[in-house]
Computed example of a mutant assay.
Amino acid sequence: MRPLIAITCSFADEKIFLNRGYYEAVEKAGGIPVGVAPLRDKDVLSNLLDRVDGLLLSGGPDVDPRHFGENPRPGLGEVNPLRDEAEIFLCREAVKRRKPVLGICRGVQLINIALGGTVYQDIGSEMEKPLKHRQEAPRWYASHDVNVSKDSLLYRILESDLVPVNSFHHQAVKDVAEILKPVAFSQDGVVEAVEGASGEFFLLGVQWHPEEMWREYPLQLKLFEALVDAARMK
C-alpha cells in the first residue's frame, strides 16, 4: 500500500501552488502526494493528519519572526501569516503523533521555529562572511557542499559525510530547538540540516532543495524514499 504524504502548498494572489519536483519525488519514492492548502480550521487540519501517513513541509517565503519572539529586521522578506499558522500547527501536531516529517528549505526553518527554536532573519546581514546561499545557477545544480555528521539519521540515509547541494535561501536555523539536533553544516557554519534528537521517529529538515536535484543527483531521492518508508511503517 502506498502511503499518503501531505505536502504543504505555497499561497499567493488567492492561489495555491506546488512545484512539480515535490510531488513527482514523492510519487517516484513510492508515496501518494496530497497537496495541502493553508487552511485556517484546525479541526480540518487535525482530521487531515488523521488520514495521511507523513508530512512534507515545502519551501516558500520567510516565517514571521513574531513566531520566535523577534521584531522584523530590514533583511526580512515576504511573509505569509496564513501559511505560517497552518504549517506550525501541522508540524506540532505531527510531532505529537510521531508521524514522519520532512522539511525542505523554509520547511527546516519552520520545524525549528514550531518546536521552540529561532532563525536568522537574514544571514547576509547577521552572519560574518557567509557563503552565497542564493545561487545564480540552474535550480538542479549543486553550488556548494555540506558536511554531514556520521552519527545521524541523515548520514544513514545518504551514506555520505560530504553532500553537494543547491542553495536558495537567505534565512537559516539559528538557535536549535531542544528536541532537535543539527547534523549538517556548510563551510561558513550555516546549519544545513536538523533532525529529532531522540531518534524515536522520523523528523528531518534540510536547508537545500532535493526536489529540484534528484533527477540529476539520484542520491537526493533517498530523502523522499526515507520519508515514504517511515510513513509506510505507521
Rank of each mutant, 00 (worst) to 15 (best):
L4Y: 15
L4D: 14
I7G: 06
C9L: 07
S10A: 15
A12F: 06
D13E: 15
D13S: 14
E14C: 06
K15P: 09
F17K: 13
L18Y: 14
Y22R: 12
K28M: 04
K28G: 08
G30Y: 07
P33G: 05
V34Q: 08
P38F: 01
R40Q: 13
R40K: 14
D43S: 14
S46Y: 08
L48H: 00
L56Y: 11
L57M: 04
P61W: 15
D62N: 12
D64A: 11
D64V: 12
R66N: 04
R66Y: 07
E70R: 13
L76S: 13
N80W: 10
R83Q: 02
V95L: 11
K99A: 11
K99C: 11
P100R: 00
I104A: 11
V108N: 02
L110W: 02
N112Y: 01
G117W: 08
T118L: 15
Y120Q: 06
D122A: 08
I123K: 01
E126V: 06
K132W: 14
R134L: 10
R134S: 15
A137T: 10
A137P: 03
R139Y: 08
R139L: 12
S143Y: 12
S143P: 13
L153E: 01
L154H: 00
L154S: 07
I157W: 02
D161G: 02
L162K: 13
P164Q: 06
Q171F: 03
A172F: 09
K174S: 04
I179N: 08
K181Y: 07
K181G: 03
V190A: 00
V191Q: 05
E192L: 13
G196A: 07
G196L: 00
L204G: 02
W208I: 10
P210V: 04
R215M: 08
L219H: 04
L223V: 09
L223M: 12
A226C: 12
M233G: 00
